[in-house]
Write a protein that binds this DNA or RNA. Sequence first.
RNA 1: GGCCGCGUGGCGCAACUGAAUAGCGCAUCAGAUUUCGGCUCUGAGGGUUGGGGGUUUGAAUCCCUUCGCGGUCACCA
Length: 553
Amino acid sequence: MVFPMLRFVKGNPVQIGEQVGAFLEKEVTEVSGYNVIKGFLNIVISDTFYLDFFNGIKDKSDYGLVKESADDAVMVEYSSPNTNKPLHLGHVRNNLLGYSVAEILKASGKKVYKTQIINDRGIHICKSMLAWQKFGKGETPENTGLKGDKLVGNYYVAFDKAYKEEIATMVASGIDEKVAKKEALILLDAQQMLQKWEAGDDEVVSLWKTMNSWVYKGFDETYKNMGVDFDKLYYESDTYLLGKDVVADGIKKGVFYKKEDGSVWIDLTNEGLDEKIVLRSDGTAVYMTQDIGTAIQRVKDYADINGMVYTVGNEQDYHFKVLFLILKKLGFSWAEQLYHLSYGMVDLPSGKMKSREGTVVDADDLMNDMTQTAATISEELGKLEEYSTDEKQELYKMIGLGALKYYILKVDPKKRILFNPEESVDFQGNTGPFIQYAYARIQSILRKADFDSGTTVTLSAVEELHAKEKELIKQLQQFPETIQLAAENYSPALIANYVYDLVKEFNSFYQQVSILGEVDEQNKILRVQLSRKVAEVIESGFKLLGIEVPQRM
RNA sequence: GGCCGCGUGGCGCAACUGAAUAGCGCAUCAGAUUUCGGCUCUGAGGGUUGGGGGUUUGAAUCCCUUCGCGGUCACCA
């Protein structure tokens, strides 16, 4: 407080601190004292101020949340899976991050559209389709009892196996490996199938629809379990041709240029990047073309949005840098408000996850395992006598997923996570269940507090605030600004850390002062109110992370 | 190799974007309470913030340099 002033006011920091402090104490009612240490001025805020503040928020059920303003909308994209295999751990981080950031933006006052673009076409899905045709023997989710996405994923693996076998045979008969990889019949068949799809071949399209519908059913189940949702779905099969006309337009504007072979490029060397292709020489679109077109389409679909958030792994950092730059050069005003929510990979102790090598951690399995672990722990310790089997099951899921979600979201998105399935996820210390437990404990207190705790407590009634009460109020006060900060930084980790600090503060308070045992009636009321507010903020903060809180555990 | 990101006690993470003695969890040790739910609380030990230099009254944070790890540099997505 004092040091920045030294640039303008010459003098001894300690003396200046003394002067400013004395002035504030005298002139500002909220300041009841001050001291100066090593040139840092500390001011003491009066109990009245704390209590007034608390009384102002205690009955606000939406404390900290800013009402959504219609003219400030943003679209958040996350998940966006391929439809040839089930969701895995990498998608889990993506989904949790995207969902949470969307909720945080909402809480900060923006209107938010959650979306994803489903990669439902292309060679990958043709591989699954082809393998199913060849080896499937009419298997369906119904007649096998398998989840649709798992079934289709199995055929993706089956394709790869057959493909590798064919290559091996070809190599054994003296064909060069590189050639074999390109000319294996099964691969050529898959490529042919893709061409048929693009030509609208009835049989292929029908199979494609059927198998995708299986996958969607499976995905829906996973999303539901995970607790994420979307307002609008885009499908690559609808959008993959978008963007070509924009390219033509961009050539006229001089943003792009055409090479002799007909391919179209943008030169970004002045920006320290490379040249990037936006249209192939045969006139077909590349990934970038599609993304340009899709972005523009979205703004057409939702005229109120002036920004977008793309939740995509950091291996695509370069792609998004280029994409945003292109959109700016094309002159779209909203291009300034695009953000790539880039996150680090989730690695296993064994290294990278490879779906074809079976080293992936499946999202459904992971959630089930977490629920199972939570059940084991809870059965030893829980106070759940009154709960039915179903209620218990629901609670275990709440705790298990709480642990998983918190574990992933408390880490800065940019950092990579090393995920050890054996050690799995903590349930003690800075964890979701630790916070859920604090919440459940407060609920227990509130259940017992059956007296009228609704009155407003004044300072004259309690005389003085306990140091722990002040600390709690201080912590509560930071909730609104934490939400704003988290929104500006697209960082659920800030919310997680905040809630954790609040809980630590509450636990310390709980240990030091008696709540229901307090003899002074007014004091007891205040402490119950404080506890209730803390619980509300925990619930509200956790909601932003997509984590639920239990009445008992 | 060019570009991007990350490097903080043994391990896992923080630090309000430049401030006071760099916090917290796990683990270790010592305590408290055990009739508001002990999945709790209090305390101790453990750090030259990868290394070196610089800017500043002040640097984990900004600049330069160097090392390590990862990513990315397709007419793939």
